[in-house]
C-alpha cells in the first residue's frame, strides 16, 4: 500500500518535472558565449542578448508582434465583452448554438483556420499586414475573452441592475457604475489571454506574415530550421518573459474563481 503510494507520488513528481523543467532549458542556452548552443554552457555571457537587441530584423519582429498583440486584444476584448453580455441575456437553445459558434475556433485545427483565412485575406491585400495578422489572431482569442468575461458576469447579481434601473439610471450609467466594475477582473483576464494568444501564435502567422510583417515566433521558426544559434534562445527567452509577465498580471488581476478550478 505504502509502496504503491510512493510509486504514484514519484511518478506524479516526475511528470510535473517533465512539464516544467525542459522549458527552463532555454534560459541557460541564451547565456552561451560560444557561437553554437551548448547545454549547460561552458562560458556564460550576454553576447547574444546584445546581438538580439542590436539586430534590426529581430527588433522589427518584436515590434510587429507587439502591435499585432495589442490590436488583437483590442478587437477581441471589444467584440468579446459585448458578446458575453449578450449571451448572458439569452436563454435556451439559441444561447447554446451561439456559444458553440463563438467557441468553434478552439476546436477547428489552427492550420485549417489559417489556410482558410490566408485564402480570403490574400486577394484583399491584407496578407503581410499587422491588421491581417490581428484579425486572424482575434478569431483565436475571441473564445478566451468570451469565457473569461462570461465567468465574471455570473458573479453579477441581476437584482443590482434592476435596482439601478428602477432608481432611474440610464442603461449607459448602469453599465459604467455597476456592470463594468464587477466584470473588470474578467476583462483584464480576457485581455491578457488575448495578448498571450497573439504573442505565442505561430501557425496563422506563418501564413499571414508574408515578408513585410514577420512576428517574433515566425522569425524564430525560420531561424530554427536553418541553424542552432544562441540568438534563438535569446528570442525564446524574451517571448517567455513577456508571457510570464502577462500570466502574472492575469493571475493577480484576473477573476478569483479561476485560480481554483
Amino acid at each position: 500500500m505504502i509502496v504503491t503510494r510512493s510509486l504514484i507520488h514519484g511518478l506524479a513528481s516526475a511528470v510535473l518535472a517533465f512539464l516544467v523543467l525542459p522549458i527552463l532549458a532555454v534560459l541557460p542556452a541564451s547565456f552561451n558565449r560560444a557561437s553554437f548552443i551548448r547545454l549547460p554552457p561552458t562560458e556564460y555571457s550576454l553576447r547574444w542578448y546584445e546581438r538580439f537587441f542590436q539586430d534590426r530584423e529581430w527588433l522589427t519582429s518584436l515590434a510587429t508582434s507587439t502591435k499585432v498583440a495589442l490590436l488583437t486584444a483590442l478587437i477581441a476584448l471589444a467584440l468579446g465583452t459585448a458578446a458575453a453580455i449578450g449571451l448572458e441575456r439569452l436563454r435556451g437553445r439559441l444561447r447554446g448554438v451561439l456559444t458553440g459558434l463563438f467557441l468553434a475556433p478552439m476546436i477547428v485545427p489552427v492550420v485549417v483556420t489559417a489556410v482558410a483565412l490566408y485564402y480570403v485575406i490574400r486577394p484583399m491585400g491584407l496578407s503581410g499586414t499587422v491588421l491581417g495578422l490581428a484579425l486572424g489572431h482575434a478569431v483565436l482569442a475571441l473564445p478566451f475573452v468570451i469565457i473569461n468575461v462570461g465567468v465574471s458576469l455570473r458573479t453579477l447579481d441581476p437584482a443590482l441592475l434592476r435596482a439601478a434601473d428602477g432608481l432611474g439610471a440610464s442603461p449607459a450609467r448602469v453599465f459604467l457604475t455597476i456592470t463594468l466594475p464587477i466584470i473588470l477582473p474578467g476583462l483584464i483576464g480576457g485581455a491578457v489571454f488575448a495578448l498571450i494568444t497573439s504573442f505565442d501564435e505561430l501557425v496563422v502567422a506563418i501564413f499571414l506574415s508574408g515578408i513585410q510583417a514577420k512576428t517574433l515566433p515566425v522569425k524564430i521558426w525560420e531561424v530554427i530550421r536553418l541553424e542552432f544559434t544562441p540568438v534563438v534562445a535569446v528570442a525564446s527567452t524574451v517571448l517567455i518573459a513577456i508571457t510570464v509577465a502577462l500570466f502574472g498580471a492575469a493571475r493577480t488581476l484576473g477573476p478569483r474563481e479561476r485560480s481554483r478550478p
Partner: peptide
Amino acid sequence: SVLIRTFA
C-alpha cells in the same frame, strides 16, 4: 508558446 516548448 508551443514553438518554444518544441525548441526546448
